[in-house]
């Protein structure tokens, strides 16, 4: 342990910008970014599955409201959504006295809400596309077995739709990571926020932003790796068989 700390100090010796302090800010930023992106992706995914099913419904009164939601959130910039949720809620009368205020007061939760709704909208459309692309033969076969609509959805349509959606969803995860860079406009100390802080304090744009770009690259690499693994496992039946 002692070795590591002396090695660390030697490494930083004579370095004006990357002191233990600024690395601390980057670390804090990494934690915030990871939390924000992970939580919003999980929550967005949970919301998106029922929405995607509703969106593929034959009944207009079920699919239209969902279409309206995805249209609004895909049709406006995430930055604007974040501004509206962070600065806009303040103008609702009595919000400071309501039970919601402890949550909305912190910058983290308005950002989490904006990111969740945004990724839910995109994920809904990704899944809906995958559900629509289910082969007719599979559905006919399920009907021939006498499956109910629900059972067919659960056993036949959704499992194959998830697999089809996987590559597109992997892209959405990476987009979300990069979109999270705007969190610093509402004072969150995410990775980009840490970089902006270091940049403003030391007037060192190259060092501050190249370093943070490298961290984003590492995160993206981890995500790519994870999805490649998932695709290998879940889409194994689509690969050509080895002789």
């Amino acid at each position: 342990m002692l070795d590591i700390s002396t090695w660390f100090n030697d490494l930083l010796a004579g370095n004006v910008i990357f002191t233990a302090d600024t690395l601390g800010y980057y670390w804090e930023g990494l934690v915030t970014t990871t939390q924000l992106v992970f939580l919003s992706l999980v929550a967005g995914l949970i919301i998106a599955v029922p929405l995607a099913i509703m969106r593929s419904s034959k009944h207009k009164w079920i699919s239209l409201p969902v279409y309206f939601f995805t249209y609004v959130f895909r049709g406006t910039p995430l930055l604007i959504q974040l501004y509206i949720i962070y600065y806009g809620v303040v103008f609702i009368d009595g919000i400071q006295e309501s039970f919601l205020w402890p949550v909305l007061r912190e910058a983290f939760y308005p950002a989490l809400i904006a990111f969740t709704l945004n990724t839910a909208a995109y994920t809904t459309e990704i899944f809906r596309g995958a559900i629509k692309a289910t082969a007719k033969g599979e559905i006919e076969a399920a009907r021939a077995y006498g499956m109910s609509q629900n059972l067919m959805m659960r056993r036949i349509i959704l499992p194959s739709a998830f697999r089809r959606a996987l590559p597109a969803y992997g892209n959405e995860v990476i987009f979300m990571l990069h979109a999270s860079a705007i969190a610093s406009v509402v004072t969150l100390m995410d990775l980009t926020g840490a970089a902006r802080f270091v940049y403003a304090r030391y007037y060192a744009p190259f060092e501050a932003f190249l370093f943070v770009a490298a961290i984003y690259l590492c995160l993206t690499f981890a995500i790519l790796f994870f999805f490649r693994y998932l695709e290998k496992r879940l889409l194994a039946h689509l690969r050509p068989q080895d002789a």
């Binding site: 600065y87 303040v90 400071q96 007061r105 910058a107 406009v185 004072t187 926020g193």
Partner: peptide, 18 residues
């Protein structure tokens, strides 16, 4: 510590009691 890009944003959040 909350850091803002402009002094105006900061005043807005002061009024919002953040």
């Amino acid at each position: 510590i909350s850091r803002y890009s402009t002094a105006d944003d900061m005043v807005l959040d002061m009024e919002a009691e953040r």
